[in-house]
Computed example of a mutant assay.
Amino acid sequence: FDMKAITNKAHDHNCLVGFDLAHATGNIGLKLHDWGVDFAAWCGYKYLNGGPGAPSGVFIHERHLGLKDIPRFEGWWGHDKANRFDMPEEFMPLETVEAWQLSNPPILSMAALLASLKIFHEAGISQLREKSEKLTSYLEALIKSELSNQIEIITPPSPQSRGCQLSLRLLQPVEDITKLLHDRGVISDWREPDVIRVAPVPLYNSFKDCYTFVQILKSILNEC
Rank of each mutant, 00 (worst) to 15 (best):
P71R: 04
N14T: 00
V201E: 12
I28L: 08
L139K: 02
V198L: 13
L48Y: 09
A112D: 10
L203W: 08
N8S: 14
L48K: 09
G163R: 11
K208S: 07
G53A: 07
K218V: 00
S132Q: 13
A54P: 07
P93T: 07
K118V: 15
E89W: 07
S145G: 03
G124D: 12
L180S: 10
D189S: 12
T25Y: 10
L16E: 02
Q127S: 13
A123N: 05
C164V: 01
I154F: 00
V58R: 13
S167F: 05
S161L: 15
W190P: 05
H23V: 11
K118H: 11
F207M: 08
K118C: 07
I70E: 01
W190S: 12
S116P: 05
M87K: 06
G29Q: 13
D194S: 15
A54W: 03
S137V: 05
A141H: 09
H33C: 01
I125Y: 08
F213R: 10
V198S: 03
C43H: 07
Q150V: 09
K131G: 11
M92F: 02
D86P: 00
P193K: 12
P156R: 09
M87T: 06
I60R: 01
H79M: 13
G75M: 08
L147W: 02
R184C: 05
G18I: 05
S126E: 14
D80M: 14
K134S: 08
D12G: 02
L108S: 11
W76F: 15
K68G: 10
A22Y: 00
L94Q: 12
I6G: 00
F120K: 02
T25H: 01
F213C: 04
G185T: 04
K31R: 14
E192Y: 05
S126I: 09
D38E: 02
E90A: 14
F213E: 05
R129Y: 04
H64Y: 15
L32M: 11
V201R: 07
A123H: 08
A54K: 06
Y47W: 12
V198G: 00
P159Q: 11
Q150I: 04
F120W: 04
G75V: 12
F213N: 06
S103C: 13
G57T: 10
G185S: 04
F213A: 04
L142G: 03
M3E: 02
L67N: 01
K144M: 08
L113R: 03
K118T: 11
E223D: 12
S206Y: 04
D80A: 15
V195L: 08
K81A: 15
A40F: 07
A5N: 01
D189Q: 10
I143E: 06
E74L: 03
L166V: 02
G78F: 08
A41N: 05
I151K: 04
S167G: 03
L139Y: 00
N27E: 14
E192D: 12
K134V: 09
I60M: 13
S56R: 12
D12S: 10
S56N: 14
S219T: 15
T96Q: 01
